[in-house]
Design a protein around this nucleic acid. Structure first.
Lengths: 191, 191
DNA sequence: CGTCTATTTGAATGTACTCAAAAGCGGTGG
DNA sequence: CCACCGCTTTTGAGTACATTCAAATAGACG
């Protein structure tokens, strides 16, 4: 019987014995953050990624006029990081903040690469993970090109179910690329 | 001395002997297309991806009002497919057309997966490939959220250098998410 | 209960869009 | 080589829609 959330999550793609999973788990460090604290800030070299056990993260860009542009939300069983920095080695331009009190599992890039060598099945998992992340970002670009803000909003609600209660509307607006006022008017229409 | 374009391309990430590359090459089928022909059309199951030897491809979505939305261009040494269909197994929604007479190397998904087992280094290559594709799509989303159409246009020109001569402006407009008329006015500004 | 933050509403502004027409460009055939 | 045709780009005018700014309302939290 699989009880650990990360074990459950990995099991969607690969079979792992209790023993294998225990090895994996040793590579991860549990961390707890209070609401509003920042897990990643801009202008750093990011060498970790995070698995969300409980809570909710938001990844956003702060532009030159101090406006926030939300790239991604991450709830339970999602992964998060500044992947631009993580993968390419440049300094981060993104911030990752906790929208709620949040429990994370952190893993260092180097450690993960080692772990992938030790447990090759995991490499398969992370390739699949990347594939689906790639696909969902492609879909988002198509949605930006093809759909109105109202359509994107309803798509958002189905993609992040039950997230309205957890996330501020102005944060959703900044994900959709519109102002809070525009989202407010869209929400009035939708009803 | 490495002469084959695909060998050169793979060598940016991994070392391959002539013998190894010859094995790899057997998995690929050369194809030639005339300008304006479609490599992939919507409503199919896509099980191949393509490496561009010569020419230029454009991947686009045709919406309900018959407008085209360009997801990607692919010139020499780029890969192309409908990756949403390829990775998730759903029917394609995208079209891939040849903007010029184009020479491709085609590889079947099943064959590629086999090949990855046979030559594990290649798996590393394709993971890296996915990572950088993922990163560039994240950047594009951020750019859509953060930048004006004019900024996105100049970014586009640096990301696809020397492509202006090869691609119609209305196709660039459909990549940027604006009308050809708007792009025309932007181009007038930029000068 | 009061304060701070988030959301809604309204009015004015601006930016990108649509539609229509003209100009430019490239390829083909006479 | 030139003239024509089709396609692309540009230009202009009117329109629609999202934005900004400001103010009012609603909600959350100590």
């Amino acid at each position: 019987m699989i009880t650990h959330p990360l074990h459950k999550h990995l099991s969607k793609e690969i079979d792992l014995s209790k023993e294998e999973f225990d090895i994996i788990l040793e590579y991860f460090t549990p961390l707890s953050f209070k609401k509003k604290s920042l897990v990643i800030t801009s202008n750093q070299y990011v060498s970790d990624q995070y698995f969300v056990l409980k809570g909710c993260l938001r990844t956003y860009l702060l532009d030159t006029s101090a406006k926030e542009h939300t790239l991604q939300f991450a709830i339970e069983n999602w992964w998060s990081s500044d992947y631009i920095s993580y993968y390419t080695g440049v300094k981060s331009i993104l911030n990752v903040e906790c929208i709620e009190d949040t429990d994370l599992l952190k893993v260092k890039k180097e450690d993960l690469e080692q772990l992938l060598l030790r447990i090759p099945k995991l490499e398969h998992f992370f390739r699949k993970q990347l594939e689906s992340a790639f696909v969902s970002f492609q879909k988002r670009i198509l949605s930006n090109l093809n759909n109105t803000a109202e359509e994107r909003y309803t798509t958002f609600l189905t993609r992040y179910p039950n997230i309205e209660q957890r996330v501020k509307n102005y944060q959703i607006a900044s994900y959709l690329g519109i102002t809070p006022e525009s989202l407010s008017r869209i929400r009035k229409q939708v009803k």
